[in-house]
């Protein structure tokens, strides 16, 4: 019975092929340093899950953002846990992604044939920092408000087009409700969508070329 059902599904879905292509791949002898990439992916997924649950209560408006976070932290069951994981997860994700980049650099894994994997990887590092930057403003507390004030001003110091960049980031000349709304949208839709797409490409390339082996003396 199960066998039949499996065969039917297999016929339609090609599970074996997916299994062969994604999971049953040969790899060079592994090393714990190789887990950094998957750890980044794990953190991305965890941030996604906890982030989605935070939006159940969070309200992106200067009038309500702070109070809604206070509510999550103090009144919602396990709200402190969900937000705590999301808060510390962001810190850990930046660290893990950065260390992953350094590891790939040290083992020179970005060389032929993995150049593109590296370029998309740098994109992922920048997008991760973008997630951190946009997410930081959302609690609308003193620390986040002033960090964003400074951050956007630094971006605005670009010669000639600085003022335009600043206005685009803030949604106007000042840090306001528009900024919060923009950062919220960027944090939950735009950047995650980009991240997911680039992660897809990055993973495809990793599978296509296989994980690089640790270099030995004659490499």
């Amino acid at each position: 019975m199960w066998r039949k059902l499996y065969a039917w599904l297999e016929d339609r879905l090609g599970l074996e092929e997916i299994y062969k292509a994604t999971l049953d791949r040969p790899e060079p002898k592994g090393n714990w340093w190789n887990t950094l990439g998957s750890a980044s992916l794990f953190l991305f997924l965890l941030q996604g899950v906890t982030g989605i649950f935070l939006t159940v209560y969070y309200t992106p408006s200067p009038d309500h953002a702070y109070d809604s976070i206070q509510y999550i932290m103090n009144d919602v069951a396990f709200g402190w846990l969900i937000r705590g994981i999301h808060h510390w997860g962001s810190t850990l994700m930046v660290i893990v992604v950065f260390v992953h980049m350094v590891r790939v650099f040290v083992t020179a894994s970005y060389k032929y044939p993995r150049e593109l994997t590296w370029i998309f990887g740098v994109g992922l590092l920048l997008l991760t920092l973008g997630m951190g930057f946009t997410g930081y403003l959302l609690p609308w507390n003193q620390r986040s408000y002033w960090a964003t004030e400074v951050g956007t001003r630094i971006a605005g110091s670009v010669p000639l087009i600085g003022d335009s960049i600043l206005r685009v980031l803030r949604g106007g000349p000042d840090l306001s409700a528009l900024t919060l709304q923009r950062f919220f949208s960027g944090h939950i839709w735009i950047i995650p969508a980009l991240l997911a797409a680039v992660i897809g490409v990055h993973l495809y390339l990793v599978m296509r070329h296989g994980e690089s082996h640790f270099p030995d003396k004659d490499d």
Partner: peptide, 11 residues
């Protein structure tokens, strides 16, 4: 690769 491991479940 020939002297390596499998992604599932080793890695």
């Amino acid at each position: 690769l020939a002297h390596g491991e499998r992604f599932w479940p080793d890695s």
